[in-house]
C-alpha cells in the first residue's frame, strides 16, 4: 500500500474511481464511433473548455484589469464607482453570451421554421436591456453618493466605508 501511494500519489480507491469514471465516459463516447459527427462533437467538447479557459476568461479578466486600473487613476469619489460599472457590464456580457444566436441573428431559417417568426427584435431588446442595466446602476450610484454625503457630512472624500 505504501509503495502504491508513493508511486501513484493517492490511495487505490482514487485510481479505481477515476478509471470507472473514464470507462463510463468512454462508453458514452463509443456510441459515436463510426458516426461522421464524432470529430465535430469532439471539437465542440474540447473547444467549449478551451474557449472558456483561454479566450473568455483572459478576455474578461483583462477587461476588469483595465477597468480597475482606469478607475484607480481617477480621483477617488466618496463611493467607489467600480462595481457600478462592473455589475451592469457583467449583466450585458452574460446576456450577450447566453442569447447570442438571436442577438446576432444566427440560425434565422431554423428559427423561422420552428416559430414562424424572424429574429428581428432580439438585438434591439438586448441593447435596451444594457441601457437599462447601466441606467439603474447609475441611479443606485447617485443615491449612494447622496446618502454618503449626508452621513459623512464634511468628512474628506473616501473616508466613508462601504
Amino acid at each position: 500500500m505504501g509503495t502504491f501511494i508513493s508511486r501513484y500519489g493517492a490511495r487505490p480507491a482514487h485510481l479505481a474511481l477515476l478509471l470507472v469514471s473514464f470507462a463510463v465516459a468512454a462508453y458514452a463516447a463509443s456510441f459515436l464511433l463510426g458516426d461522421p459527427a464524432l470529430l465535430t462533437v469532439l471539437v465542440w467538447f474540447v473547444g467549449a473548455a478551451v474557449v472558456h479557459d483561454l479566450v473568455l476568461f483572459p478576455l474578461y479578466a483583462a477587461a476588469d484589469g483595465f477597468l480597475t486600473a482606469t478607475v484607480a487613476r481617477l480621483p477617488r469619489p466618496r463611493v467607489p464607482v467600480i462595481n457600478h460599472i462592473r455589475i451592469p457590464a457583467l449583466g450585458a456580457g452574460l446576456t450577450l453570451l447566453m442569447f447570442l444566436p438571436g442577438i446576432i441573428r444566427q440560425g434565422g431559417v431554423t428559427h423561422m421554421a420552428a416559430t414562424g417568426l424572424d429574429q428581428q427584435p432580439y438585438l434591439g431588446r438586448w441593447l435596451w436591456l444594457v441601457v437599462v442595466l447601466f441606467a439603474v446602476s447609475a441611479v443606485v450610484y447617485g443615491v449612494r453618493l447622496l446618502l454618503a454625503r449626508r452621513s459623512t457630512g464634511d468628512l474628506p472624500a473616501g473616508a466613508g466605508a462601504t
Binding site: 459515436l32 442569447f99 421554421a113
Partner: peptide
C-alpha cells in the same frame, strides 16, 4: 434558440 451551427444531432450530442 434554434441555432444549429454545431452541425451534429442535438439530441445525440
Amino acid at each position: 434558440q434554434y441555432d444549429y451551427v454545431f452541425g451534429f444531432s442535438f439530441y445525440t450530442g
